[in-house]
C-alpha cells in the first residue's frame, strides 16, 4: 500500500545543510494503522508533507498504491492526492467562508463528482452534525470543527488517511471521541491510517508504533506512559 525507500530530505539554511530525513524506510500494509512518535523538530511534518506529495524528497522513493508519486506531474499529483489521500490537521483548517456542508463537499466539487451533494450529506450525518450543516466554522466548537474536517477527509473514500495530531487542540473528552470516530471509520472502510502524535497512549491504539529519530523510523520500545 505505502512503500517508502531510502527517503532523504535536506534543507538549506543559510550556508549549512540540515538533514531532516536520512534513508528512511517504511512499509504499510493496506488497512494497517501506524502511529509515528517524535520530538518537536524531529521531522514529522516533513515526513507527512512528503507522503502527502506536498514536497519533493532529496532522494528516495514513495510508492503509494503501486504509483511512484514523485514521478507524477503537479496536476497528476493533485488528482492522485485528492482521490487517494485524506488529511486531518491539528488546526482543523476549514475554509472560513464555507458552511460545514460546503466544506465537506469541496473535495468532491474539485473533481466535479456529480453526486457531491449526496455524498456530503451522508458524510455530515455520519459524524453526527447534520443539524449544523449551514453553520460557518466560526460558529462551531473545536470538536465540531474537527468532525467536519474528518468528514471532509473521508468523503472522497481515500485509501490512506494521514492525521497530524487530530486531537491536539481539543480537550481530553472531545479528543477521545474524535479519535474513536477516526478509528471507527478507518476500520469500517479498511482505510490505511498514519497517525502523527505526541500521545503514546493514543499511539498504542494503532497496529504499529514507530519513533522518528535522527531522520529514521524505528520501532517504539518504550512504555505507554512515556511522553513525547
Amino acid at each position: 500500500m505505502l512503500e517508502i525507500n531510502n527517503l532523504s530530505k535536506t534543507y538549506r539554511q543559510g550556508s549549512s545543510d540540515i538533514n531532516v530525513l536520512s534513508d528512511l524506510e517504511l512499509l504499510v500494509e493496506p488497512g494497517e494503522s501506524v502511529a509515528i512518535l517524535g520530538q518537536s523538530g524531529s521531522g514529522k511534518s516533513t515526513l507527512l508533507s512528503l507522503v502527502a506529495g506536498l514536497d519533493q524528497p532529496s532522494s528516495g522513493s514513495i510508492v503509494m498504491n503501486h504509483q511512484n508519486i514523485e514521478q507524477l506531474s503537479e496536476k497528476k499529483l493533485s488528482e492522485f492526492r485528492a482521490k487517494n489521500l485524506g488529511i486531518v490537521f491539528q488546526q482543523f483548517h476549514l475554509m472560513s467562508n464555507l458552511t460545514a456542508l460546503e466544506n465537506i463537499r469541496l473535495p468532491l466539487e474539485i473533481f466535479k463528482d456529480p453526486k457531491a451533494q449526496e455524498k456530503a450529506s451522508r458524510a455530515i450525518e455520519q459524524v453526527g452534525l447534520k443539524h449544523r450543516a449551514n453553520h460557518f466554522p466560526s460558529e462551531l466548537s473545536g470538536g465540531e470543527k474537527q468532525r467536519i474536517a474528518i468528514a471532509r477527509a473521508f468523503v472522497v473514500e481515500p485509501k490512506i488517511l494521514l492525521a497530524d495530531e487530530p486531537s491536539g487542540n481539543l480537550d481530553q473528552d472531545t479528543g477521545d471521541k474524535i479519535m474513536e470516530l477516526i478509528f471507527e471509520i478507518c476500520r469500517t472502510n479498511q482505510t490505511t491510517f498514519i497517525l502523527v502524535t505526541h500521545n503514546i497512549s493514543l499511539a498504542a491504539r494503532c497496529n504499529r508504533v514507530l519513533v522518528l529519530e535522527h531522520g529514521r523510523l524505528n520501532p517504539y520500545t518504550g512504555k505507554t506512559s512515556d511522553a513525547y
Partner: peptide, 8 residues
Amino acid sequence: TRAILSQD
C-alpha cells in the same frame, strides 16, 4: 504548501 503541516 508543506507550511500548512508545520507544527513548529
